[in-house]
């Protein structure tokens, strides 16, 4: 509600400043109000769900070790947050290293696939095939091969993340208008020139949409890797508290994972915004 009032207020102010533009301003503000309302709908719905959950748990038909109430989870969350810090940093580190490796691998694969048709024919089907392998089934193998350290977790993250990135990269390069490529050819542009000025920027645009998806997967991948054993990390923590039936702590860890994933998602959107200055300016 406060937001709504704010936009109303600014509408009045702007209208006073530029009386001739009142209609434009009114439309702009009407749009902003609509956006705010749209955003709050899901928030309100979420709060309603939480209230419902709270009511069901307080009525007392479900024991706390099966399903803790949102309030319990909230209290526990604040209490265990200091303990979670180390686990969180480990998971975050695994996720970020995994993402960086994925980006590098995807970049190399995408460039090779784009420049060598034979390579694409050979690799692309295998890439798709690799996505049908259940990662949960692979993770124990990684632990057998690489031990309980960071490497198996990073590998899981990489396996989960690189696919959306490489696909978006390749699609971005494929999406370049063939007339544009002909124009470059008629100018006798070298392959490197075409790559630098045309294909790479075109790929960057779709690369970010792939990266955003990958980013949300990355934390999940790290947690899956940690479930199967390790010393630190949110997944390890979750397994430990699960064994002692402290489900409130389990849910607290889930909240951390959700918030972390969302922050990473936002971070990518922010980087995207700064990487593409041409998107910042408004259309005519």
């Amino acid at each position: 509600m406060r937001k709504l009032q704010n936009t109303e207020g600014s509408k009045d102010r702007e209208a006073n400043e530029k009386p001739g533009n009142w209609k434009v301003n009114f439309n702009k503000n009407a749009n902003m109000i609509k956006q705010t309302v749209d955003k709050s709908i899901s928030m309100v719905f979420l709060i309603l769900l939480l209230i419902l959950w709270q009511i069901i748990s307080s009525v007392g038909s479900i024991p706390k070790y099966i399903l803790p109430s949102p309030l319990d989870v909230g209290i526990t969350f604040v209490k265990v947050l200091p303990d979670l810090k180390d686990h969180l940093l480990t998971t975050l580190w695994e996720a970020i290293v995994g993402i960086v490796i994925s980006i590098i691998v995807s970049f190399v694969l995408a460039v090779l696939m784009d420049s060598i048709a034979f390579f694409k024919k050979a690799i692309y089907p295998i890439l798709i095939l690799s996505q049908t392998i259940p990662i949960i089934a692979l993770a124990p193998l990684f632990i057998i091969w690489f031990g309980f350290g960071l490497i198996p977790k990073i590998l899981v993250v990489t396996l989960v993340c690189f696919f959306p990135i490489v696909v978006s990269f390749v699609d971005g390069m494929d999406s370049v208008d063939s007339d544009l490529l002909n124009l470059m050819k008629s100018m006798k542009a070298s392959k490197l020139m075409v790559f630098r000025h045309i294909k790479l920027p075109a790929a960057i645009v779709s690369f970010f949409s792939g990266l955003r998806i990958a980013m949300t997967y990355s934390v999940m991948g790290a947690v899956i890797g940690e479930w199967l054993g390790g010393e630190k990390g949110l997944g390890v923590y979750m397994m430990r508290v699960k064994h002692s039936y402290s489900l409130d702590k389990f849910f607290a860890a889930i909240i951390v994972i959700v918030v972390l994933s969302m922050l990473l998602f936002k971070l990518i959107s922010l980087i995207e915004y700064f990487c593409m200055p041409w998107k910042k300016v408004k259309a005519r």
Partner: peptide, 19 residues
């Protein structure tokens, strides 16, 4: 032989990422 004459299409083919 390419690279001698310039060619313009119906589409402007300006690169959206360059000013």
């Amino acid at each position: 032989k390419t690279g001698r004459v310039s060619y313009m299409y119906q589409k402007d083919l300006l690169l959206p990422w360059k000013n």
